[in-house]
Design a protein around this nucleic acid. Structure first.
Length: 110
DNA sequence: AGTATGACATAGC
DNA sequence: AGCTATGCCATAC
């Protein structure tokens, strides 16, 4: 199996498993990926993530997306999540404690 | 082939 | 309570 980027593969898989209407943070994915320090790799992986990966559901600790989404339109991020039913705060950030992924939907582990 | 940097997070002070 | 320093894997030059 593609052992070249087992970490990336893991991150892609996790990001793909993010349920609709919920979001996950880099630390969360990194933690599930195997190491909480992989947070950077999560972002890096998202950078090279295929269209199959909903990178817009991956947000940072502040509940906002990364600078890479700015060129696409910060509003796009908000609209995308909002369209999925993700609540937003008056600060313009995502309501993490309200829509943060519990990580229990990772393969029928419910 | 090696070095440097990167879409962040955690820990220490 | 906020800032600095470190860590990780992969990609690019």
């Amino acid at each position: 199996m593609e052992e070249q980027g087992r970490v990336f593969q893991r991150i892609y898989a996790l990001a793909r498993q993010i349920p609709y209407g919920q979001v996950a943070t880099y630390g969360q994915l990194a933690r599930m990926a195997g190491n909480p320090r992989l947070s950077r790799m999560v972002g890096c992986a998202m950078s090279a993530a295929p269209d199959d990966v909903p990178c817009h559901r991956v947000v940072n600790r502040r509940g906002e997306l990364c600078a890479a989404f700015l060129p696409l339109g910060r509003a796009s991020h908000r609209l995308l999540l909002e369209m999925e039913g993700v609540p937003f705060l008056p600060d313009g950030r995502v309501d993490l404690p309200h829509c943060l992924w519990d990580g229990t939907t990772d393969c029928g582990a419910e």
